[in-house]
Simulated assay, not measured.
Amino acid sequence: MRYIIIGAGAVGGTIGGRLHQHGHRVVLVARGAHLAALRADGLRLAAPDGVATLPVPAVGGPEELELHPDDVLVLAVKTQHSAALLDAWAARPVAGGGTAGERLPLLCAQNGVENERLALRRFRHVYGVCVWLPSTHLEPGRVAAAGSPLSGILHIGRYPAGRDAVAERIAADLTASRFDAPVSDDVMRWKYAKLLSNLANALEAVGGPVRGALRLALAERAVAEGEKVLAAAGIDHPDRAEQQAVRGDRVTLLPIEGEERGGGSSWQSLARGAGDIEADHLNGEIVLLGRLHGVPAPLNDALRRLANSFAREGRAPGGLPEADLAALLEG
């Protein structure tokens, strides 16, 4: 198999880098300064055990590659960028006939629960990946993966449900590349659990690290809203005890020399000045489900709107005044 990583940021760069390190064929897909750095100097993968410079091939898009039947596409971008990329890649021809959308497996290694639905409109063979992978991408050409002894846990399964030989083979490759990669018959169950944990992403992005009584109370309320909404929608997910039993001590965050770990994926979007953020597909998913099932989610709606405002205005992460944070708790 050749793994084509569409979006070589924190998650995609770590997955692609680890696969490359362990002997698998990998192509990274990136853009702008990140692509230029990857082409010039390779991927610099920083981890607790050191920094490796990896000569992974990098391209700017599907027009630069000839696709083959043994290719695996791994989508690892934020949800707001998924549709355009799925359109571009699904239409590409595959050697021997047919298109990528008809013939190639596509993995959604992303937060949220919308990407798989978007992909299934365009691809016949879609797989969900629940990503528990502490990683950072703030500098062109460099990603940092702080997990040890494994870099992360990647549940994988067919979408909407089930498993097959392709999932098993991909999981085996990931397992041999410093990941725990359980194959699940219901991968979306795990992705809804991850959605709940991601509801604090917007809070961290606008209000700073989620610690201290005020921020912890806000995070707990956002998750409580989410749990109530999922219950009303009849959506099952692993509770915290089941999640912890799976994680165990497989992935422990350790310091990386020369690397200061900032925040999660939404925080990183603001820190990079990306101009957009994934809150519409995290907190916004809870707001949407709440409206469909008659359960209000006011805090998640407020966090969604604040995160989008910060992204549009190019504001630095963590800049929301303490009084405004307190007002969210009182609202």
Rank of each mutant, 00 (worst) to 15 (best):
Gly61Met: 03
Ala100Thr: 12
Ser82Gly: 10
Arg92Met: 15
Pro55Gly: 05
Thr53Pro: 08
Leu104Thr: 08
Thr79Leu: 11
Glu64Ala: 15
Ala58Pro: 08
Arg103Ser: 06
Ala95Gly: 08
Val72Leu: 15
Leu67Tyr: 11
Gly97Ser: 12
Thr53Val: 14
Gly98Ile: 07
Asn111Leu: 07
Ala88Asn: 10
Asn111Arg: 03
Ala109Asn: 11
Pro69Ile: 10
Gly112Val: 00
Asp87Gln: 09
Thr79Arg: 06
Gln110His: 04
Trp89Pro: 10
Ala95Gln: 14
Gln80Cys: 13
Ala95Glu: 14
Pro105Thr: 02
Pro93Val: 03
His81Tyr: 12
Pro69Gly: 13
His68Gln: 15
Leu86Tyr: 08
Lys78Thr: 08
Leu104Trp: 03
Trp89Thr: 07
Val113Met: 01
Ala91Val: 10
Gly98Thr: 05
Pro62Gly: 08
Gly61Glu: 01
Cys108Val: 06
Thr79Asp: 01
Val113Lys: 02
Val51His: 13
Glu66Lys: 12
Gly112Pro: 00
Thr53Phe: 00
Pro62Ser: 03
Pro93Ala: 02
Arg103Thr: 11
Gly60His: 02
Leu54Met: 07
Leu107Ala: 03
Leu106Ile: 13
Ala109Gln: 03
Thr53Lys: 05
Leu75Met: 14
Leu65Trp: 04
Ala95Trp: 03
Glu102Asn: 03
Pro62Arg: 01
Pro93Phe: 03
Ser82Gln: 10
Ala76Ile: 00
Val94Asn: 09
Val56Arg: 02
Val56Glu: 05
Gly98Ser: 08
Leu106Val: 15
Val74Arg: 07
Gly61Ser: 05
Leu65Thr: 12
Ala52Ile: 01
Glu63His: 14
Leu85Met: 15
Leu65Cys: 11
Leu65Ser: 11
Gln110Leu: 00
Val74Asp: 09
Ala91His: 09
Gln80Val: 14
Val113Asn: 06
Val94Leu: 08
Ala52Val: 14
Gly112Arg: 01
Leu107Tyr: 14
Thr79Cys: 13
Leu104Lys: 05
Arg103Trp: 07
Cys108Ile: 09
Ala109Gly: 06
Val72Lys: 14
Pro57Tyr: 02
Lys78Tyr: 05
Cys108Asp: 09
Pro93Asp: 01
Thr99Ser: 15
Pro55Tyr: 00
Leu73Pro: 08
Leu86Val: 09
Ala91Met: 09
Val77Met: 06
Ala90Tyr: 10
Gly97His: 04
Val77Asp: 04
Cys108Arg: 09
Leu75His: 09
Arg103Ile: 11
Leu54Pro: 04
Glu66Arg: 15
Leu85Val: 06
Val113Glu: 01
Gln80Asn: 12
Gly112Ala: 04
Ala58Tyr: 11
Arg103Phe: 10
Leu75Ser: 12
Leu67Trp: 02
Pro62Asn: 03
Pro57Leu: 00
Pro62Tyr: 06
Glu66Asp: 15
Leu107Cys: 12
Pro93Ile: 01
Leu54Ser: 01
Leu85Thr: 05
Arg92Ser: 14
Val59Lys: 10
Glu114Tyr: 12
Lys78Gly: 03
Thr99Asp: 13
